[in-house]
Design a protein around this nucleic acid. Structure first.
Lengths: 138, 138
DNA sequence: TTGATTGCAAACAATTTGCAATACT
DNA sequence: AGTATTGCAAATTGTTTGCAATCAA
């Protein structure tokens, strides 16, 4: 079924590169646009959006919406790093993302599915709060 | 300080009423707009947004961004119901929200702050996944 | 009367879309 | 050659803002 060939382009490669270089960062389409303009030359914004759509569809990148309302954020789903399995904590103050790979989480998910019949999707879920540093700074 | 009087209007009352009638629903500004038009007559959209802003500011309502990108969602923070304390699970298929008031969650938060130094903010956090019904239907 | 709130229309910002030009294989 | 991808500009969509009219106190 669905057999659409996949052409390899300069633009796509650059977007992939951006994520490779910034595996922990939540980037906006604009961040990537600016990266391209700075390092690689000109690009159309629509192209960025289309690349990102493709990557989200392929499960390479996760798309979510920031609290701020400044638009969507994209982040690499690094399977080598277990990003498809673990939770992400995001600090609402400094924006840092913590990858939560921890046995307790498995218990957490098991509890939720067992007691509440709810199957957590951790590729979509982001837990907001304050990281240690920012909490201390307050 | 800050002593801005608060006038009571037909429009504000209707928005509050909407939330009172739908304490569990995540509504868009447009949902509320349509509710008003249907039940109460005409209203400007800007007014809806301004009412909602006010309520968010007062901590009566929570604002968050849906996955779909269809815009912001608003939901009553019902203190009588502990919505300021417990987690919310949202089904990505049917949109239903489950209020998770459960001892395990306290343990969860304690674990995260203890082992990962992260202070969870459950007024902002929404856990996505599939509810029992939708999971069964697949 | 005083100041907050409304409604409209215009302004905005992020994203999407149509389509002809271009690049990949 | 044949088709996916790009770039531009125009169109959409959700939200915000300026301002005069209106309404609550």
């Amino acid at each position: 079924m669905e057999n659409k060939r996949n052409y390899h382009t300069r633009q796509q490669e650059a977007v992939a590169e951006y994520f490779r270089l910034n595996p922990d960062v939540c980037a906006t389409a604009d961040d990537i646009y600016l990266y391209f303009m700075r390092e690689k030359g000109k690009i159309g914004k629509a192209t960025i959006y289309r690349c990102l759509d493709r990557m989200v569809e392929n499960g390479e990148v996760k798309r979510f919406l920031s609290d701020g309302g400044d638009g969507a954020m994209y982040q690499l789903i690094d399977p080598a790093n277990g990003c498809d399995r673990h939770f992400h904590l995001k600090c609402t103050s400094c924006g840092r993302v913590i990858h939560l790979d921890c046995g307790f989480m498995a218990a957490f998910e098991k509890h939720i599915v067992g007691h509440h019949g709810f199957r957590v999707d951790n590729t979509r879920t982001i837990i907001y709060g304050l990281c240690e540093t920012c909490a201390a700074a307050q």
